[in-house]
């Protein structure tokens, strides 16, 4: 009970900070929305070989990819925030209290996830007038998958930040993990357009499965193998990374 209460305490505090610094939120929107408006119209033709006939078809393929990118890349940045807070003494101030150590990191991760999901909802809503249509139930399931991806990225980033507590060295490390993961997952264009060898490599990438799963939910194919495979993979990965990050945090800060 104490653990849940403490997590809630940390979470609400972090959400308050997000709320008080709207600039950060807005910057999070600007790029995806610019992509949505300026880049997606090119897609109808590009995606024609995959069977996309209308803008609605194109957006159903493109928007989920965009959301995966948002959630992964922003999630991977969470470690920098943690480093800043470790340095500035904000976390130290909580550490002199008997507050749960796990709550300190989980509350933070949850606030990142909720913020990202808020951004994902706004982007989805903005895409509607462009012709995106999507089944409500499957959309909710896609959000669950995205939230788990955000949690995984965030926890992985926290763990890396504690492993390499220097912002200058952390940047390249995060890039070298996130670049191949997203490039080899077909986030922007589905890999069904790619040559066979590329797909063969991508099949080893967990993000490939979760991206395809999210996309299948948007396009209304909830029975696709990528949906349940992606879901299982992301649940396992989120559990693994969260355990890793909380262990490292508890060890580091005692």
């Amino acid at each position: 009970m104490k653990f849940l209460r403490d997590t809630w305490l940390v979470f609400t505090r972090q959400m308050l900070l997000v709320w008080r610094t709207p600039a950060r939120l807005v910057i999070g929107f600007v790029q995806p929305i610019a992509y949505l408006v300026l880049f997606a119209p090119l897609l109808k033709t590009a995606l024609a070989p995959t069977g996309a006939q209308t803008y609605a078809d194109a957006y159903r393929v493109y928007v989920p990819g965009l959301l995966v990118v948002l959630v992964l890349l922003s999630g991977f940045f969470a470690g920098f925030g943690l480093l800043g807070e470790l340095r500035s003494g904000v976390i130290e101030r909580s550490r002199v209290t008997p507050v749960s150590r796990t709550a300190l990191i989980l509350g933070r991760a949850f606030s990142e996830v909720v913020t990202l999901m808020g951004q994902a909802v706004v982007i989805t809503v903005v895409a509607l007038p462009f012709g995106l249509t999507v089944h409500f139930g499957w959309l909710m399931l896609a959000y669950v998958m995205l939230a788990l991806m955000a949690l995984m990225a965030c926890a992985l980033s926290y763990a890396m930040a504690m492993l390499i507590p220097s912002p200058a060295a952390l940047g390249p490390l995060i890039n070298s993990v996130s670049q191949p993961l997203s490039l080899l997952s077909g986030v922007l264009l589905p890999l069904s357009l790619a040559p066979g060898w590329l797909v063969a490599i991508a099949e080893w990438n967990p993000i490939y499965w979760t991206t395809n799963g999210t996309r299948s939910l948007f396009t209304g194919n909830p029975g696709d193998v990528s949906v349940w495979a992606g879901m299982l993979i992301v649940i396992a990965l989120a559990a693994l990374t969260v355990t890793w990050a909380t262990r490292m945090f508890a060890r580091q800060v005692r």
């Binding site: 308050l16 900070l17 008080r20 500035s88 003494g89 904000v90 130290e92 101030r93 002199v96």
Partner: peptide
Amino acid sequence: YVPQGGTTTDEV
């Protein structure tokens, strides 16, 4: 404990 640098957060 009141640390050397202080820990108030600007936004709250």
